[in-house]
Design a protein around this nucleic acid. Sequence first.
DNA 1: AGCCAGGCCCAAC
DNA 2: GTTGGGCATGGC
Length: 286
Amino acid sequence: MNKLVIEGIKDFNLEHIFQCGQCFRWTQNKDESFTGVAGGKVITLSIHGTTLTIENSSLDDFDSFWANYLDLETDYGKIKDNLVQSDERIAPAIATGYGIRILNQEIWETIASFIISANNNIPRISASIEKIAQRFGDFIATYNGQDYYAFPKPEKIANLSIDDLTACGLGYRARYLINTAKKFIELGNEYFDHLLSDEVSYKEAFDELIKLEGVGPKVANCILLFSLKKRAAFPIDTWMKKVMALIYEFDEEDIKGMAKFADEHFGEYAGIAQQYLFYYVRNNAN
DNA sequence: AGCCAGGCCCAAC
DNA sequence: GTTGGGCATGGC
């Protein structure tokens, strides 16, 4: 089995990365490594010190996909310094989730995952996505005794029935996902590639995404942050309301105030600040 | 039993 | 443009 070893990886912690709510298809193994599916591949990651090990990947796959997926080119040390200088009250959250990185995930799976996420909880979201993949996705491989499946393409989802998806626990979101799959096909991959480019601003991309059924302001911000590289996006869910009230003494319903604060203090890195805060409130501050 | 979870849709102002 | 009720599902 292929095993790649990458040296000199800083600001990188697997639990922080995979348990901060940005992704739903990575699971922790007994030895602290994580196995997950993306890009039609399944790999296992482990890190000791600054040495990252990738099992079941070729060097080509690393260069063409995983390096970007794991956001390895970004200097998070610099970003963390920048955030603390902007507002020192975020320092405890950064100290807690110091190894977070924002994954650069595939656009269709991210749209689908966060449509499913609405008014839902992380264990149920993960379970629903896994059922959809196992029942309707393409088989990838049997790996360490387990079968892995890709998340189905929009063409596949568009042809499912409402019942197919409610059977996966989607509830009323089933209709949104099917309708948005049809819309995604109609718009085409080029449309979303364009939103990813630097030519399109955060605000412009936001206005496009919220046209999709099942995609409101919060879900749009997650898609912008986790797939379209718009790091200014600042998703505000029930957890963020809690932590913004706790640390910054906002009224829990003052979403506009929170968004304005994030823009003014964290600016182009607001989304990264958001992940530290989200991880903090879910794992530490209760 | 009722509340909560990475909220959105739609109708009524 | 803003506000509020309704909403599938499962864990606690």
